[in-house]
């Protein structure tokens, strides 16, 4: 069905952290594909495993973290099996990442020019002078006014929005094929966020890269993504194209999330919250992880974990919910967050 080339395919990723209180399965069943030149969103609430997913892909986990299973196929090659040296090449040249907090990833004692210049020197194998020149070009590209002046400044002399632009300039300095953006605008004001999102989209169109946009903001997802993976408690529960996700959300959690969202663009009567709260990573439910909060959970849901399965015969849409399987043991008509639904089974 899918004619598009997938530049990245993530299959059933499993990442565990050792802690004093026992092991945490931070990522436990994450799968998605990134078609070339497209943007895929990873959306989910705090602690659902979004950042750990991206750090696992780039193999940048903290020392107490371990990948227990799954594969990360970048142009067919499993990144999890590469030697560290080859991985370093990929990280600098083909897959770049920008982080939520630019201050933590910019070095305060070096000027903006030195930092971008270093990346350029390493990856393009050019001299220092040329690197600075190219840094100025990069700053211009990301829309920083008077870039000749800015290259000589230190990160603390820039505003939050400008720092984020510098981060993007650094990430793009090596012409990556994939840009992973982890909450790139969460710390910014909306008018600045609008500038940065526009910038990322514009650069993507010009440079033809693929983007993995990690966010908890459903507005950002709707606006920037082509495909979306919804995460809950370390797992992808729904993967689909952005339009189906918003127009026809299938997983009860996705529906609950959309119903909880206060909107600025329309008048809403009442919010319909999801009851309860996310399970503690130390006490994950044995069955469906959403079962303790799901309004239609059944015996089966509580006892057996559903798999992430294709809904049609294409893999463009996948759901992790018993309701979409032949094994469903609940009613064939259910009401979910005020919405009536008939289950085909």
């Amino acid at each position: 069905m899918n004619e598009m080339e997938n530049i990245l395919v993530v299959n059933n990723l499993q990442t565990t952290f050792k802690t004093d209180a026992g092991d945490i399965r931070a990522v436990d069943g994450v799968s998605f594909t990134v078609p070339k030149g497209k943007t895929i969103g990873i959306v989910g609430e705090s602690g659902s495993g979004k950042s750990i997913t991206s750090l696992t892909i780039l193999r940048l986990l903290a020392s107490n973290g371990r990948v227990n299973g799954g594969e990360v196929l970048f142009k067919g090659k499993d990144l999890l099996k590469l030697p560290e040296k080859a991985m370093r090449e990929i990280r600098g040249n083909q897959i770049s990442m920008i982080f939520q907090e630019p201050m933590t990833s910019l070095n305060p004692v070096y000027t903006v020019g030195q930092q971008i210049g270093e990346t350029i020197q390493i990856h393009k194998k050019v001299g220092k002078k040329e690197a600075i020149q190219q840094s100025i070009e990069m700053l211009k590209l990301v829309g920083i006014p008077s870039p000749e002046k800015r290259v000589k400044q230190y990160p603390h002399e820039l505003s939050g929005g400008m720092r984020q632009r510098v981060m993007i300039a650094m990430a793009l300095a090596c012409d990556p094929e994939i840009l992973i953006a982890d909450e790139p605008t969460t710390a910014l004001d909306v008018t600045i966020q609008a500038q940065i999102l526009e910038l990322i989209k514009d650069l993507q169109n010009r440079l033809g890269m693929s983007v993995i946009m990690i966010t908890h903001d459903l507005g950002v997802v709707a606006e920037t993504c082509d495909y979306v993976a919804v995460m809950y408690a370390g797992q992808v529960v729904e993967y689909s194209d952005v339009r189906s996700l918003f127009k026809n959300p299938k997983h009860p959690y996705t529906l609950g999330l959309l119903n909880s969202l206060p909107r600025h663009d329309i008048e809403q009567e009442k919010l319909i919250p999801i009851k309860g709260m996310v399970p503690s990573p130390h006490e994950m439910p044995v069955g469906c992880r959403f079962a303790p909060r799901c309004p239609v959970a059944t015996e089966l849901c509580h006892n057996k974990m559903p798999q992430l399965l294709n809904t049609n015969d294409s893999n463009a849409e996948q759901i992790r919910c018993w309701m979409f399987s032949d094994e469903w043991d609940g009613d064939s008509e259910v009401t979910l967050y005020g919405e009536k639904r008939t289950i085909k089974g």
Binding site: I192, L197, E223
Partner: peptide, 25 residues
Amino acid sequence: KALLSAIPVPDPDAVKNRIVLKGDV
């Protein structure tokens, strides 16, 4: 108007008339 237009709308079909403000506060 700029502030309202800058907020991403959780609807992929929403019509956008974004006013992108230049510069910082």
